[in-house]
Structures are given as structure tokens and as C-alpha cells.
Simulated assay, not measured.
Amino acid sequence: MSNTKLIIEERAANIGNFLVGRLLPFRQKRMVGPFIFIDHMGPVNMNDKENLDVAMHPHIGLSTLTFLFEGAIVHRDSLGTEIEITPGAVNWMTAGKGVVHTERTPERLRQSQKKLHGLQIWVALPKEEEQCEPTFTHVEADEIPSWNEDGVEFKLIAGKAFGKQSPVPVYSPLYFIEIKSETTKTVTIGEYLFGESAVYILEGSIISDNHTYGEKQLLVAKDSTLCSFEITANSTVYIFGGESFLEERFIEWNFVASDKNLIERAKKDWKNNKFPSVPNETVKIPLPEQNLHVLEDKKLIKNKQYENRKTRSF
């Protein structure tokens, strides 16, 4: 019997000069463990006049995880953080009761040809941590646990698995794992996983239960403890998941909460300029007039609406 419960195709859209593929949320699967939002951004080539410039926007009730394959982004936030993230490193920002940030192309790259490619992930916070003080952590690429087993390369980007622990300071039991192989290999890791689990195929393909799955597919497992597949040569996949929460999570614009009242309060606070500002930033993105998540599964969405969604993509 197949262990694949659901197959989610990456839903692509042009956002200005960026290509973003929405993976979560999905109409049939809002979350996988505590993971509530995943975008595959790029790959995109930008010329000397094209740059990433996402102005000030707020978050509550979640942690953001930015992981780049190519390019660089300067992160600035209302805590006073200013740091450049490059491929293989992790930016982990916990919004808690409220944080504001921006993402921009570094000055050193703004007048040159460049690429941008990576994953932007939101992890919902446990109910008791939803209103915690905001924090920011940067973890360099060489601090991420990495190892080789029988020619297969593993990285534990966040969480706990395989008897190892990432230095990324997560708030609930979860895992986010990179697996690469230059040759075709069988990967059996179910004994190390728990809760809900999903596999995202970035490059190449995997074979599971006599079915071949290719790039830009997200496979949600029926049982994480049965996770076993054949990874084909020159493939890269990501395994993520963990323990689900007992309470439902609501998501609107950049806000996540177990209580809709927290989201309504955050919306009012953003309109009324009650969120903190990012030092040396002046432009803020206004609250959209409608909940853009309602539109996420429609295939034809006006470009203007996607321009607004850019505030949630990085």
C-alpha cells in the first residue's frame, strides 16, 4: 500500500521579476506538523536594474525560516538586526507578539547581474508561545549538522532527527532535512521521523511505491515512520514535519494565530502604526483590503494581487 497520502503540485506565479511556487497552505492540507507556509522563490536572474526590495511588513505568531540556494538577501528588522544571508545559512526570526522586517538585495549586488533562489518557510508557534517576545537568530552554513551515509548527503537544517540537533532555536518538535545524492540510492529514514511528514522534490526525482515523482512536487506521507524511497542520481529533496498542534491555526496576510482576535488586533495595530519600525526604513506595506489566502488555489489571479503577495514571500 502506498504511503503517499497527498500529492501537492507547486503552484507557480510571476511576482514582478520573481517566480514563486506556493506549496503550503493548500486547500486539502493547510499544515504539515507546525509548518504552515512554504514558498519556493526563484530561481530568477536579475539584471543591474532589478533588485529585491520588500518594504516594512509585520508578522505575529510564527517563526520565519529563510534558506537560500543562490543569491543573497539583507534582512533588517525592528529588533535592530541587519544581516546578509547567503546560501546554506539560516535566518530564523520569531515574531511572537509582533515584529517588522524588510528584505532587500545587498548594496554590493544592486548594480550587477545576480540570481536568487531559495525557500521561505513559516513555522507556527505553540499556543503558549504565540505572544512571546520577538527574537532573531542567524546560523552560518558550517554550523548546520551535515553528514554522509553511503554516498547520500544529509543536512539537518532545523529541529531534531537522526540523534542530532540543529542550532536553530525551534519552539516545538519538528525537523527540516536536506538530502542530496549524485547516484541512485535507497533512503530509509522513517525510524527517525515523527508526527506528520512531507517530502519536497527540488531537483531530480524519487521513486516510492513503484511510482516516480518529479521536481516541484510535495508528497505528504500517510505515516512518517514508513518514510522510505529511492532517490535518483543528482537529486535534492527536503523532508519536513513534526508534531501537529491540538488547536487550529488561522492565517491571514502575514499573521498566524490560534485566536482570530489576535489577528484582528494585529491588523488594527498595523493600520494605526502601533508596530515597531525598522531602523533606517521609512516605507511600509499597507494592509491588503482582502485576505489573499482565500485566493491561493485559483489559477488566474491578477498580477496586482500577486504584487501584494510579495510581502509574504520573503
Rank of each mutant, 00 (worst) to 15 (best):
H101Q: 06
I231S: 02
R22L: 13
I189Q: 03
W92E: 07
I231F: 03
H211G: 06
S146P: 01
G61K: 01
Y175V: 05
G151Y: 10
L109E: 00
I15R: 05
S235F: 04
I7W: 06
E296L: 10
E153D: 09
N272W: 03
F245V: 08
T186G: 08
E203T: 15
D150H: 14
H293T: 07
E140N: 14
P279Y: 07
I83V: 15
R30I: 04
M31Y: 04
E248C: 08
Q305Y: 12
N51T: 15
A158V: 05
W92V: 06
H293Q: 12
N280E: 04
I157D: 03
T102H: 07
Y171E: 10
E247M: 09
I85T: 13
T94Y: 09
R312G: 00
K216Y: 12
K97P: 04
D150M: 11
S112I: 04
Y306A: 05
E307T: 13
L156K: 00
K298M: 14
S205Q: 12
E143L: 11
N234I: 05
V168A: 02
M41I: 15
L62Y: 01
I179H: 01
W122E: 00
N273P: 02
V54G: 03
L156D: 03
N210G: 07
P288R: 01
F240S: 04
A198E: 08
I73M: 12
M56A: 10
N47M: 13
R249N: 10
Q217H: 08
V168L: 06
R265T: 15
N17R: 13
S172P: 01
F229E: 01
S146N: 08
E215A: 13
F69R: 12
K155F: 09
E252W: 00
G71F: 08
V74A: 09
